[in-house]
Design a protein around this nucleic acid. Structure first.
Length: 109
DNA sequence: GCTTTGACTCTCG
DNA sequence: TCGAGAGCCAAAG
């Protein structure tokens, strides 16, 4: 594991905790980290070296399972379209960059 | 050590 | 329902 800011490491760890077919939000992650650094969480994801399309191994971070506070898809390095496709593959319903059953697929961390 | 930036969120019109 | 503006936090320069 390369060296990285503590905050980033915590974010990645929490992300891995999200089960397949479920999603979480930046806000929830930040809250779990005991902070309100929503933006910092997003930045961590952007810089994350364990991206789904980058690291398919054990350390892989399902960053595509992290969505906006209201369940609407926000930024993704490879494009929201790709993100939506990935989520659909996991059994999550996406409607126009918006999660349909958001309350049901929201992981309870 | 201050300034800039960003995969965010909230509020208002 | 949607777009624009302001606020917040952490990391990098």
């Amino acid at each position: 594991m390369g060296k990285m800011p503590k905050f980033y490491g915590r974010v990645y760890k929490l992300c891995r905790k999200v089960p397949k077919g479920k999603v979480t939000t930046y806000k929830a992650l930040a809250k779990k980290l005991g902070s309100k650094a929503y933006r910092a969480v997003g930045t961590a994801m952007n810089k994350n070296p364990y991206g789904i399309l980058r690291c398919k191994g054990k350390n892989m971070v399902p960053c595509h399972r992290v969505v906006g506070s209201n369940g609407h898809l926000v930024g993704f390095a490879h494009g929201l379209k790709k993100k939506a496709e990935l989520l659909k593959k996991e059994g999550i319903r996406i409607k126009n960059n918006r999660i349909e059953d958001f309350d049901k697929v929201l992981a309870n961390l």
